[in-house]
């Protein structure tokens, strides 16, 4: 089943031209998709449309087959969770558990169920021991994990991360990516990872490259990164590991495109004395 389906979707912010142009795009249930693109390529617009925070000028958006309209917005948002960029502007409450409870309270769950949802969500992001901690004293990565838990408490089937790692340090980024990967593998949640860290895209099933409001490339990450020249025209840089592989290949070491450190080391070791 298709978790998300965009058909001929256009959107513009006033007169400054189209943010999205006749976009056709879909995500299968259970998929882990990365969306890449330079700043202003339309990736965040796409995320906001999928959650009904923006309304398309033209075209249709379907979530699990259901057409997104003004009327079913509330129900669609239960299915599609979104985590934003800034770890400091998403929490409503000061304490971790109060904030995680927020979404569950909004949809009118009873107290026992909210408690169970908090348990589940905090465990899923590995923050169960911080249940009564003050959010402002957590690290950036922890704050974002709380934000993810707040979304998880609504038991969404799709999770969108709108550059949620952009403001974190490497440790925080790693925490988030691990959590998201686990959610995808163990909970079967469909994940849309919007990022400009090329390394993060390597973990996904599929990478989508956007440029000026259009999808210009769509393939397995390794295949995408093989098309170096094309990526450069979209103002994207290759992951460093890919740059290195290219350099080695030019020099005559036939490394494959596994883009994984241990494999690459193995391949190099074979050809080097």
């Amino acid at each position: 089943m298709k978790a998300l389906e965009f058909s001929d979707v256009s959107f513009s912010y006033g007169e400054e031209g189209f943010a999205l142009k006749k976009l056709n795009f879909s995500v299968e249930e259970g998929e882990f998709v990365a969306i890449l693109g330079h700043n202003g390529s339309g990736k965040s617009t796409l995320a906001r449309l999928a959650d009904g925070l923006l309304t398309a000028d033209e075209g249709e958006i379907r979530v699990f087959g259901e057409l997104l309209t003004e009327k079913n917005l509330f129900d669609i948002r239960k299915d599609v969770g979104i985590v934003f960029q800034n770890p400091d502007s998403q929490a409503v409450a000061s304490l971790v558990e109060d904030d995680v409870a927020f979404g569950a309270e909004n949809v009118g769950l009873e107290r026992g169920e909210i408690g169970r949802r908090i348990d589940f969500a905090l465990r899923a992001v590995g923050m169960e021991s911080y249940r009564t901690a003050t959010i402002s004293r957590l690290s950036g990565g922890q704050k974002q994990r709380v934000a993810i838990a707040g979304v998880l408490a609504l038991k969404p089937r799709v999770m969108i991360l709108d550059e949620s790692t952009a403001m974190l340090d490497p440790r925080g980024r790693k925490e988030i990516i691990e959590v998201v990967r686990k959610l995808n593998e163990e909970e079967g949640i469909t994940v849309l990872l919007i990022t400009h860290f090329m390394e993060e895209a390597l973990l996904c099933h599929r990478a989508v490259v956007m440029n000026r409001g259009e999808i210009v490339m769509q393939d397995a990450p390794a295949n995408i990164f093989r098309r170096r020249e094309e990526l450069l025209t979209y103002n994207l840089a290759l992951p460093r590991i890919e740059v290195l592989c290219n350099r080695l290949r030019e020099g005559g070491i036939p490394v494959t495109d596994a883009l994984e450190i241990e494999t690459l080391a193995e391949e190099i070791a074979k050809c080097v004395s």
């Binding site: 906001r48 959650d51 925070l53 509330f74 948002r77 239960k78 969770g81 979104i82 934003f84 960029q85 800034n86 400091d88 502007s89 998403q90 409503v92 558990e97 109060d98 409870a101 927020f102 979404g103 569950a104 309270e105 909004n106 949809v107 009118g108 769950l109 009873e110 107290r111 909210i114 408690g115 908090i118 934000a147 707040g150 979304v151 609504l154």
Partner: peptide
């Protein structure tokens, strides 16, 4: 203002729609 904007989005995305249907976790 930027934060208020972001927070508004984050609240909307978590199904906030005023106090009517809302329950409270902490009594």
């Amino acid at each position: 203002f930027r934060r208020a904007d972001e927070l508004g989005d984050a609240m909307d995305a978590r199904c906030y729609s005023g106090g009517k249907k809302r329950t409270k976790y902490k009594k």
